[in-house]
Design a protein around this nucleic acid. Sequence first.
DNA 1: ATCAACGTTCCAGTATGGTGGAAGGTCAAG
DNA 2: CTTGACCTTCCACCATACTGGAACGTTGAT
Lengths: 129, 129
Amino acid sequence: MRIGELANATGTTTKTLRFYESAGLMPIPPRTSSGYRDYPSDTVHRIAFIRRGQSAGLTLAQIGEILHIRDGGNAPCAHVKSLLSERLKELDHQIADLLALRETVQSLHSASLTIEPAACAPNQVCQYI
Amino acid sequence: MRIGELANATGTTTKTLRFYESAGLMPIPPRTSSGYRDYPSDTVHRIAFIRRGQSAGLTLAQIGEILHIRDGGNAPCAHVKSLLSERLKELDHQIADLLALRETVQSLHSASLTIEPAACAPNQVCQYI
DNA sequence: ATCAACGTTCCAGTATGGTGGAAGGTCAAG
DNA sequence: CTTGACCTTCCACCATACTGGAACGTTGAT
């Protein structure tokens, strides 16, 4: 199948597919005599996997690692487990950071609602921040 | 004061200060006869404000807006209030998104711990994802 | 034969907040 | 007079996942 078909079948764009290829996520596809990429039809599964990996919050680089292990003929199970638990730890950190930031912003915001703007000194930028 | 002094006094670098200037966050400073930037000493407060704005999760562009209002001789109170409440909404969105993602990753990870890797079919990339 | 719709490569830009380095000018101490 | 620490400008690059566009070749239908 040609690149446009594949893009249609997977809900991506030809641009994105060429980008994935340049990023090392796709095996180099064979070409037709005129130079068009000619993908085997099971490539849709590979693209679908990439999308699922992205919705799981993995980066393209991490998804690439998994694909490379599989392409090398091995089962990527162990690596996937460690990527997922790593990602889980990162998420916990990010969530904790954002919650702390939310606290900060929340209290700045509350203060900005209660303090009189008239009390604003012109020699500083902003009393709320 | 010269740029290195200012950088030292505020815990930034000369690179960063020149970057802030190019980003429009700093008033154009006077120069010495030899072409060195010569900052008024209250510039440290401006830099400190920028840092506080960043720890409140504001972008440099948003911090710039506040500074411009103040530089224009007006009190930025109203704008600051709206920036903070906007930021609060964004944070709530981001946190909700991350929590949902955490759920997804969590269940994928649990599955990866219980399912037998031996059940791994070689014709798909990874059963966990 | 011509036209649209597809394909190709390559280069550049998006947003964010800087960082690194080259090539050169200035200043104070020894 | 030279050395080292400072300053100047400018251009390029980091990560991330694409996107836009130019310039040109191919395919299939009318």
